[in-house]
Structure formats: C-alpha cells, structure tokens
Nucleic acid binder design. Structure first.
Lengths: 203, 203
DNA sequence: AGACAATACGGAGGTAGGCTCCACATTGTC
DNA sequence: GACAATGTGGAGCCTACCTCCGTATTGTCT
C-alpha cells in the first residue's frame, strides 16, 4: 500500500560519522552529568556544530532515545534470559531489577521516561521503548499472578512506575545500599502479598 | 558566651513588606509551574527587582524553605493529631501519607528535599526541616515496631525516602488514582510484613 | 575526471533565565 | 530635620537552548 523506499539514496558518509560521534559524546556526558547535560557541550565534544546535533536529534528526548538504543538491546537480551527462569515469582523479581537498572543508566533518566509513558503522543521518541517495557513487565507479572504469588490486582504499569521511582531515588544519591535493600524488600514483599494467602490456603 | 543581639535595630518596613510579597508570589508560581518556576517571574510578580529577591533568598532552596515554612507548620499540627491515634500501625500509615502530601505540595519538590536529606551540609536551608521530618518518621516507626506490625529492620530514613519517591511519581503525573492506590497498598503491606509473622506466632 | 544537484554542516545570533553589582532611594534614629 | 545605615532595582554578564542560512561536502551521472 505505502510506497516503500529503503534508502533511496546512499547515506552520506559524514552523516553516519557525525551521528556516531554525537551518540558517543552524549553517552559520556549523560553518564557524567545526568540527562540534563549541556547539549552544546555534547556537540563541542563530538566535534560538530549545534545545528548538526539538532538536525540529527531534534530534541533531548530523541538524543536520549538514540543513546538508550544500545541499553535497550541489552535489556532485551536479559529478558530472554530471565524468561528461562522456572519460578515465575523469581522471574518477575529479576525483571523488575533489570528494569530498575535500565532506568538507572543516567541520573535523572526516570523523569523523561515516566513522562513518555504518561503522554501517549507519538511525537515522543521515548514512548515506543516505554510501551514495550510496560508490556514486557505485564507479561512477567501475569505469569506470576497465574502460577506464583503476585498480587492479582496489579497491572504491569504499576510495577513499571515503581521501578522508575526506585531508580529515581538511586539517581538522587540519597539512598545507600542498605536503604536500597530495604526498599527492594518492602516492594517485593508488598507486590507478592495478597495472593500468597490464597495459595497457602489452596495448597 | 556568644553575643546575643535580638533585633539590634528595628526591621525596616520595606523589608518585611517585600519579603511577604516575594513569598506570596513564589507560592503561586511554585504551585503553577513547580519548583523550577522562573525566579525572575516571581520577582516581577512580587513587584521587586531581581536583586531584592536574591538578597532575601540567596538560592532557590532558601526561597523554597521560606515558602515551605507555612506547610511545615501544618504538618506539625497534623503530627500532634496523629500522635493521638491509639493503633501505632495506623498512626504510622497516616504519618507517611501526611509526609507524602507534604512532598507533593509542588511538582518537583521531592528532588531538592531528597538532595537536602543526602548532603548533610548546613549550607542548605532545607536540611533542617528534612532532618526534623526524618526524626519524626523514626518516632512513629519505632512505636509501630515495638507495639505494632512494622518490619523491625527499617529506619525512619527508609520510609522518608519511600514517601519521597511516591510523591515524585505523583508529581510526574504518570500515576492515576488507581495506580497510586496500588503503590500505597504494596508499600504498606511491605513495610508491615516481616514482623507480622512474629506477632502471629507470639499471639 | 568533471560538473551538478542534493544534502549536510557550523556557528552566528536571538531568546530566556540565573545571578551580581553598585549608584541611588528609603528608612529609622538622634 | 539631618545623617548613617540599610535596602532597592535593573542593567549587565553568563550559560544554555534552539534556529536559520550561507557555505562546504558528498554522491551521482555523463
């Protein structure tokens, strides 16, 4: 139906070179200064002008999405691996931890991610990956609800947000490892309770 | 030992007038645009120059602390009221909700608050109120640990951060009421579990 | 190889907000 | 009423975001 035109013209070499250079520099700056890093500094470090950066990535979110592409692929790999786990409760636990790690890649990352999950406009380049993550969370959750101990009333979105909020706390630097452990324990106890009693009754 | 000089000179009338005007305008702008509201806009609305604003409140945190003063007093009143509740679990629940509401006064408020709780430098004017809130949380928590069902391993700081992270989610607008309810349920289940079993065993 | 058209580049420049500084105005006191 | 202390305002500098367009680079076609 639609006219398909896969690379009607060959990509110019400077385009791919600059794009890679920008992504590299952005990754470094986001790591060092969080998602609010100066885009002008990124452009300078990438050796391109501001205009070039904004042509490749019109918004900060677009640049973030580009940098996160690599991380997303890692997360997909981890998903496959976790899907092999027999115990659905343990799988859900591992997935929520993986999600939290993904959110914690850069300080301040949860903010644009949660915003993208909220506003379902197709304009935001982060919306697509977010929806994918929410769906995957829902799959692990449903398995744990059917054959494990996960609270039945929950939705994948709930756990998605919860992972985001813990990642946010991590990003602020306000929580040391002991506090983080406490939060994980509370959360995992909380979302597994409710169905546990039923199972114990049925068993 | 120290030289005490309580109001060596009478406060100038323009000082108190401007201070009040600034706080009023800031309250409005923080409400409307979150804690990142433009301080120049605040100054303009207060009818003062930028210099005056910055002399009264050298940093955004100082201005925030000023605006939060009123809220803090409300929270103290609520604390007194909650302290009357007989059931320590219920008291802890109410206090964490009150804390969360306090954090949710302005969009983006949890960020500077958590930062102030982390860095224990006396320079930050938000550190003092934060420490107070953490201490109060610890008191309610200890009561619930001794005579209720609260998990023994927890610290007041853990629940403080948890309340902050839920408030942060609220501020993003990513969570509707159903999701917020789910998060509260998970959290309250989670921080009450662990001791519950001991009590049931003892009972 | 050379020329041409399409495409991309870069940085100047406009906008906005944070924060400082100091000539001037206001205020309390004597 | 005069004087010293104190406060005021906004001009001005800085940093960052983002756009625009004259110029440079690249791929293609002959």
């Amino acid at each position: 139906m639609g006219i398909v035109e896969p690379s009607e013209r060959k990509l110019r070499s400077d385009v791919v070179r600059n794009r890679a250079s920008i992504l590299e520099a952005a990754q470094r700056h986001f790591l060092a200064h969080g998602v609010s890093a100066s885009l002008e500094a990124v452009a300078k470090e990438a050796g391109v002008g501001a205009g070039t950066l904004y042509r490749h990535f019109p918004t900060r979110e677009a640049l973030l999405a580009g940098v996160l592409q690599l991380h997303s692929e890692e997360l997909v790999a981890r998903r496959e691996q976790i899907a092999q786990v027999a115990d659905p409760d343990e799988a859900l636990r591992q997935w929520t931890r993986a999600l939290e790690d993904y959110f914690s890649a850069f300080s301040g990352l949860p903010e644009p991610l949660m915003a993208a999950a909220r506003e379902h406009e197709p304009g935001n380049p982060l919306t697509l990956p977010c929806d994918h993550l929410i769906a995957t969370t829902g799959e692990f959750l449903e398995a744990a609800q059917l054959h494990g101990h996960a609270r039945p009333s929950l939705k994948g979105y709930d756990l998605f947000l919860l992972a985001g909020s813990v990642a946010w706390i991590r990003g602020t630097g306000a929580a040391d490892n002991a506090t983080l452990d406490a939060m994980h324990t509370i959360l995992e106890t909380g979302y597994n309770h409710g169905s546990k009693q039923q199972i114990e009754r049925d068993g």
